[in-house]
């Protein structure tokens, strides 16, 4: 909530260029702050109607009770207590929710590290090595190829490739490198991470590329003139200036992976727990308050991660 207002306040000076204010003042004498509210208003209303109000409902419902076929609008912490069932009683063993979140966080971390590494270098290549704008555009479009087919088809396509009798395994067996097909290629954490990286690296490339393209080339020349090595230039000039892009890309990837249950389901052979999966199972069993409670927990955890990241880089300042 306060983030949006902060962004509004941050954005307002930038949104009103000098000439614009002058003209507005001449004609109607509206206060600049009123104009900035007016400009930000439509987005704020959309945000309020389609995000904040539904979110408030989710939080309210998460504290309701339920039976087999209906919601009971009476205060109940059942959605939460059920979710954390056994978390103390089962110690030192982990309860379901702890196991699920550890697994989700692990997958999320792996995907984040890998997409960041690949995404950074793809963006670096596009921004600094590709000179012509046309080629930059063309190559960026190439990065969108994974999005040309539907999510489901894209994932099903991995089975003939990574499966027990798939291309990779039969190639390896025929070449004599292994005797038995590798089972861990598919329906494993490996395949989940692979599919998620394949899907979401693009979300890392775009914001980082966007940050890099705005780096003043003369800064790099200056670093070179001052005797910096390529590595020093990268660490001291490029990475700090690309930080906003890195953080935005990271937020994209982390929020998507934390809530994902379709890719994890299909690629993990439905055997890997995911925070989103718990919500889906609960919704399908018509246990809406329990699903809402899990959604609130997921939201809080994701929000904590993002808050930590924005501590490292103040995006508002950088933009």
């Amino acid at each position: 909530m306060d983030t949006s207002e902060d962004i509004l306040q941050q954005a307002s000076p930038g949104l009103i260029p000098g000439s614009g204010t002058a003209r507005a003042a001449k004609v109607t004498r509206l206060s600049p702050s009123f104009i900035s509210w007016l400009q930000a208003g439509p987005m704020m209303l959309v945000f309020l109607a389609f995000f904040l109000i539904p979110l408030v409902f989710v939080v309210i419902v998460s504290f309701w009770d339920y039976n087999e076929y209906q919601l009971l609008p009476a205060f109940s912490g059942r959605g939460y207590t059920d979710t954390f069932e056994g978390c103390i009683a089962q110690l030192p063993d982990l309860c379901t929710i702890a196991k699920t979140y550890l697994k989700t966080l692990k997958l999320c971390f792996l995907v984040w590290v890998i997409t960041l590494f690949i995404g950074f270098w793809v963006a670096y290549f596009l921004a600094f090595h590709v000179k012509s704008k046309t080629w930059q555009m063309g190559l960026s479009l190439l990065c969108t190829i994974p999005f040309w087919t539907s999510n489901v088809i894209r994932m099903i396509a991995w089975i003939p490739l990574l499966g027990r009798n798939g291309l990779v395994n039969s190639g390896l067996v025929k070449s004599g490198l292994i005797n038995h097909p590798l089972e861990w290629l598919l329906f494993s954490e490996f395949s989940v991470v692979l599919a998620l990286v394949h899907l979401f690296t693009f979300f890392m490339v775009v914001p980082i590329f966007n940050s890099m393209i705005r780096i003043d080339k003369s800064l790099i020349e200056a670093a070179y003139d001052a005797g910096a090595t390529g590595f020093q230039t990268l660490v001291n000039v490029i990475i700090p200036l690309a930080k906003p892009g890195i953080v935005i890309g990271s937020i994209f990837v982390i929020t998507i992976v934390m809530g994902d249950f379709i890719t994890i389901g299909v690629m993990g052979g439905q055997q890997i727990a995911a925070a989103g999966k718990i919500i889906e199972t609960r919704v399908n069993a018509l246990q809406f308050p329990a699903a809402a409670a899990n959604a609130v927990i997921l939201l809080i955890i994701t929000f904590l991660i993002i808050t930590m990241m924005s501590r490292i880089v103040d995006i508002k300042k950088e933009l």
Binding site: I156, I159, P160, G163, R164, N165, G166, L186, F187, G265, V266, G268, G269, Q270, Q271
Partner: peptide
Amino acid sequence: AKKAGQFRAFWKDFNESVNLMASGE
């Protein structure tokens, strides 16, 4: 059984079950 690795995958819809069986997984 799951921890011992008995299951290759679980399935959720018609097409998944067909794919698992047809591919020999």
